[in-house]
Every structure is written in C-alpha cells, then in structure tokens.
C-alpha cells in the first residue's frame, strides 16, 4: 500500500446510506483532483442489517482491487453497531474512528477499548434532524470525515456536492441547502 493512499471503511445499517456516502465522498474528492475508489461490501443488501462500504483516495492511480483490511479511517453511522460489529478491526495506532453519537470521546474509547486520541465524535443524527429534517447521518458524517482527514479542500468538496445535489434535486432546493448545512455543521462540530 502506497504511503500516500488513504483507506476508509464506513459502517452503517442497510438503508442508512453507507454506500451512498462512500460514493458521494469519492465523487467529490475526485473533483479536488485525486484518484478515488468507492465500493460496497459485496453481497445481498437487507434493510437494517450491518453493512460496510469503502473508499480509497490517492494522488496516484489506484490499481488495487481488493477489500480494505487496514483502514486509516473508520466512520460509524450508527453507534448501536459498536455492540455487534467488530468496527475497530484492522486499525492500527494511527487509525481514527469517527462515530455518530451523543456520547463523549472518552466514553466511546472505553467501549471500543482503544486510545481516546483515536476517537472523534459528532452527533450527526441530531445535525441531520436540525438541517435536513430527517435522521440521515451520512451527509453530516461526510463533513466530519473531511475535517478529521484534514488534507482535503472542504470548499472544493462543498462546491461539488452543491453541483451534484442541484442536478439531482432540481425541484427541491431545500434539500440541497439542508445537506450542505449539515456537512458544514458536522465539519465544525466534530471533536476529539
């Protein structure tokens, strides 16, 4: 694995948009000039079942087409997954976990049994309810991820997401505004 390559694993439940988040994230990162990959866990999809999706980001072309075993970042869309899914699998001491939760960093660290410095928390569900009006944590978590990675251009990403969502929700500009606001809010509020 090249040193420059960033690997991300998303955990969610079927229907929460883990796959969509990975795809949208990849598309927007591509707009900033990087090579990207986004792929779901391969298998039948069932509403509510634990699902995973993945991203690779690199400045060089990505030739690898294998699953991601040692992610640099793990994004948890649903904190209840921490009970049933080994979400810290394969992350090393530098790996970071971003959780959608109302709990504090230290509370999560205790539960996951990893160092507090590796944990980032944001109440993405609350942000989604406030900005979009629905508990769809995937877009705000995108903002949180951008903040934690730190090297990606948030304004470029927001511009691209605006462009993509405008194309998709031409007739519902409110949805676009809400989603953009949720990304910005999570970007600002995510904390270590």
């Amino acid at each position: 694995m090249s040193a420059k390559m960033i690997e991300i694993r998303w955990h969610g439940r079927g229907g929460q948009g883990a796959k969509t988040a990975a795809l949208l994230f990849a598309e927007t990162v591509m707009a900033t000039g990087m090579y990207i990959q986004a792929f779901p866990e391969y298998g039948p999809e069932r509403m509510g079942a634990p699902v995973q999706s993945f991203n690779r980001i690199s400045e060089d072309p990505i030739v690898i087409h294998s699953g991601i075993k040692n992610p640099n970042y793990v994004v948890i869309l649903d904190s209840s997954l921490m009970e049933s899914v080994p979400i810290t699998d394969g992350i090393d001491k530098t790996g970071k976990v971003i959780v959608n939760t109302s709990l504090s960093t230290s509370e999560i660290a205790e539960r996951l049994d990893i160092d507090t410095s590796q944990i980032y928390v944001v109440n993405a569900s609350k942000i989604a309810l406030e900005t979009i009006g629905k508990d769809i944590p995937n877009t705000p978590m995108l903002g949180a991820l951008l903040k934690v990675i730190g090297t990606l251009d948030i304004n470029g990403v927001l511009k691209d997401i605006n462009f993509k969502l405008m194309a998709k929700f031409r007739h519902k500009p409110g949805i676009v505004e809400g989603n953009l606001a949720s990304i910005k809010m999570a970007f600002d509020k995510v904390k270590n």
Partner: peptide, 12 residues
C-alpha cells in the same frame, strides 16, 4: 468485467 469488484466499484 469482474462482478462487484469492477461492476460496483466507483473509479475515475
């Protein structure tokens, strides 16, 4: 092309 690995993987 390979199922899922290529068919479902978003790339540039």
């Amino acid at each position: 092309m390979d199922g899922f690995i290529t068919s479902h993987c978003m790339e540039v």
